[in-house]
Design a binder for these strands. Structure first.
Lengths: 354, 354
DNA sequence: TTGTAGGCGTTATCAA
DNA sequence: TTGATAACGCCTACAA
């Protein structure tokens, strides 16, 4: 049966001091307290096994010490890394991390936002991919709520292009994709396919943008039939593979740029099932450099965007916003560098067996 | 600049009723309230954009609606799946999920437990692997704290063998490992290596137990040189590979049972780097069936223990314990079935190229 | 059916 | 330095 925990009143009583003094020593405030009083309180607390009630404390000081990270799915390696980064710095600063899976569903995103407002979360980090077009009703409610949350003094940060007005930290999707594509071109590839992410997801569009720019700068015409729809999943990569193999021989690409690593894995698997050899028959690359990328065979050429660091930076930003919350947060965007990781899934055009 | 949110007092005032009535309708209690009063409160709340303060509410009703999941590392696919399961049912029941990475460090585990006690978390789910031997000082503090947490009325559940006294839900590690090993034997393998998990981690020991039993029952003598240390990581698998290739030819196994999938991936990679072909030269299998297992080449034979379901069951258990917290929670252990997943990384002994 | 008032556990203000 | 005491926002006897 549940038993009550001692409160600070009990501690004060036992120590023979007022609650005020007891509170002052327990909350490690800078307020002066005599050495003897401090000792008495401390030992009383120890004997009683006193545990401060953070809920009461939060209620009083108007700070919950709660940071939430909104992700599409925490089991997705992309989000998992980001969440890990968030948790690391949050924990290091005495904050608890609340994990919110939105499943990329605006409805659930809204619902979580509401709950987080209820709990007076100090910080909210949007990692779930922002959409480039927004006209559905939930979105306007979200925008409204976000504003209210900010007015309350909570800090909001986005980690991808997002319609909401908040400071943002992002990976260099465009630059990374550009560099990757340029690398393929430097290997002699001219027909390079691109497997997209889900429809209207901003990071996917950014990566495509980098791809397009590299091609254009190299004077290579864009071939619409080489833009293949994907959805960031392995299954999506597999179906992209079956589209690829059905292309007439003269339209076939010699390299494919998958919008993320998972898609690349699905692609590799699908192509193999159709009898293609990798990388002999086609070069493949991904984006994200999730841990598995270096483990598959052939190891995957990709772009590292240090997701964990992204999460860390996001949490840092939240903390710094919380420091000086008198100022309005300016919706600036900070870009974290991306790095090309050359591995074995891409080979020179001339080495291909065709 | 931060602005105050309206409280229920404001709502009551605006609606022209008492706070009691306002509270009754906002907290959707069963207490009778007239239709007109209800309407007035509702519309006042809407106009004021009232947001109930969960902190205050929790403080009052002595329930935080917070569930924590302690994992080794949320980016590890194993824990990620578990956490996902927890979040799903927690969210469905109006609970927030707190993510705690312990890094398998008892010190951090203790520290998180303390914080969770501070926040009066309603439920705590231990997913971080329990150790089979416990004599270090942190552990005794943990046991003590766990007891206090339970006395408070919070629910604690473990998802692996654990020294702490709490209800537990576990995958059938022994049975799964037994079945897997028996399968290898049925394929004609006699020399089967086992790559362990980290030292003294209980689930690793359980899997080894299943392995040993299957071998013994088949009358196959155990070969100490075939027990190779690992640590649940790909790097561990890679170093296991280099040990393996150094074995004198006559001692070489024809199959390897890696204690988890990640180890198996590292193993595959390492063996390949030494020029071995898979599965022609050696059969490999893992344990866990993480999503990547079916994507690698060759696809990995493994044991599925539906981690997500494990997380769900854990959260369910917490909720049911919370329901009737008058009773002392009996430290029962529920076992979730494991399922053998046959794929292409294992082939009959006779098909091997030796 | 409604309202008053006390208390959940802290912190902070203000006197002493 | 210390100590009453009033909040923080909510719920819930208890009375009316």
């Amino acid at each position: 049966m549940p038993t009550q925990l001692p409160s600070i009143v009990d501690v004060a009583k036992k120590a023979g001091v007022s609650v005020a003094t007891a509170s002052r020593v327990m909350s490690s405030s800078t307020y002066p307290v005599s050495g003897t009083a401090r000792e008495k309180v401390l030992s009383a607390a120890r004997e009683l096994k006193y545990v401060p009630n953070s809920l009461a404390r939060s209620l009083k000081i108007q700070r919950s010490k709660l940071i939430a990270v909104l992700v599409g799915d925490n089991a997705d390696p992309y989000f998992a890394q980001v969440a890990r980064g968030v948790e690391e710095v949050a924990n290091a600063h005495g904050y608890l991390t609340i994990m919110c899976n939105t499943g990329r569903d605006p409805m659930r995103e809204l619902s979580y936002l509401q709950t987080l407002q209820d709990y007076r979360a100090d910080g909210i980090i949007f990692s779930s991919s922002g959409l480039s077009e927004i006209d559905y009703p939930e979105q306007v409610q979200i925008d409204e709520l976000v504003e209210k949350i900010q007015e309350r003094g909570a800090a909001i940060v986005t980690l991808s292009p997002h319609s909401i007005k908040a400071p943002s930290i992002q990976s260099d999707n465009i630059g990374g994709a550009y560099e990757l594509t340029a690398y393929l071109i430097s290997l002699g590839h001219r027909r390079i396919a691109f497997v997209t992410g889900p429809d209207k997801v901003a990071v996917s569009e950014q990566r495509q943008q980098g791809y397009t720019r590299a091609l254009t700068e190299a004077g290579i015409p864009l071939s619409p039939e080489l833009i293949i729809p994907g959805n960031f999943t392995q299954a999506g990569g597999e179906s992209a593979a079956s589209i690829l193999v059905q292309l007439p021989t003269e339209q076939r690409p010699s390299a494919v740029f998958a919008c993320n690593d998972e898609t690349a894995f699905g692609l590799m698997n699908g192509l193999r099932q159709h009898g293609w050899r990798l990388p002999e028959d086609i070069s493949i690359c991904g984006f994200g450099d999730i841990p598995m990328a270096r483990m598959v065979t052939p190891s995957l050429t990709t772009v590292s965007i240090s997701l964990r660091q992204l999460g860390q930076a996001g949490a840092q930003k939240v903390l710094s916003l919380l420091q000086n919350k008198q100022q309005e947060p300016e919706p600036t965007t900070e870009i974290l560098p991306a790095m090309l990781i050359k591995r074995n899934s891409t080979i020179p055009y001339s080495s291909h067996a065709n």
